[in-house]
Design a protein around this nucleic acid. Sequence first.
DNA 1: TAAGATATGAATATCACTATCAAAAAGGTA
DNA 2: TACCTTTTTGATAGTGATATTCATATCTTA
Lengths: 157, 157
Amino acid sequence: MKNFETMSYDELLKEFKGILKANALKFTKQREAILSTLYNNPKHFTSECLYLLVKQKHPELNIGIATVYRTLSLLEENGLVSSISLGAQGKKFEIANKPHHDHLICSECGKIVEFENEQIERLQQQIAEENGFILTDHLMQLYGICSECQKKRTKGD
Amino acid sequence: MKNFETMSYDELLKEFKGILKANALKFTKQREAILSTLYNNPKHFTSECLYLLVKQKHPELNIGIATVYRTLSLLEENGLVSSISLGAQGKKFEIANKPHHDHLICSECGKIVEFENEQIERLQQQIAEENGFILTDHLMQLYGICSECQKKRTKGD
DNA sequence: TAAGATATGAATATCACTATCAAAAAGGTA
DNA sequence: TACCTTTTTGATAGTGATATTCATATCTTA
């Protein structure tokens, strides 16, 4: 897969158009609005949350929530966005124009910190090989209490 | 928390009864049926899947799916079962009478291989600390193609 | 720019899970 | 054991996130 790390918006858009063409899909205003909103807000979005933001930034499109779901699936299938499942807190999406990273999540406030660790990646590769697997992907989420929520706790009680 | 690794079913049952008593909850045939089914089938169950198996093994109980959900939550809250979220493949439960481990999952056939790696755990702890988090839990799933599915692929095409 | 395709938004359906509720069962107590 | 109180149960309805349907709108390319 391509590495989107250093991609400008124009390059990303070109990539997206290429994917659409290759699959006989159409380039629409809605799809672009969603892609650009994701690109310009490098946060982790809920589908709902992204829907509201796109609606706000592009009111003339009168975008529907179904289109947001459909487009997110499309983008994820093609590696342009990635998602993490936070169980009770829902599924969050982010644009995949950053280097690979994993997530450290606060169970109290939902804050997400990104990190990367080469050493763990190597160990994962090794584990897969030992078990006869070809590693294609991985998911690593660390859960804990962030420093702010730790402070709140001691105050609160 | 207690380590359930070497626990016999009798010990597990005793533990469960203790938890129930401590919370003023009752020991019922349904709850026991679910616990024993989990214990005797050391696999990863979907709620639905476990429901069907308990129904089959204990038809006289006429168990309802709601009870399965309720009991799984209860068992998970008390550390007797643990769960993993497999995204599209749903949430799966297993009895927590094994040492902590993570999962290596085949994206083609859904096969799950368990593994543990001390070194990764230490690195995770370290990452959490560096970011001011108190680590409470983690989720690590490696996705890949298992050796069997690799063989099928080369044959198939 | 017309033809033939896909995409869209609104509404509806689905899926996993949760809440509600009347009836049943558990487990103290006498 | 019989009673009494509380919790649990199964059935069912409800929920929220996501998927599907369908008539209309929009894109692409010829």
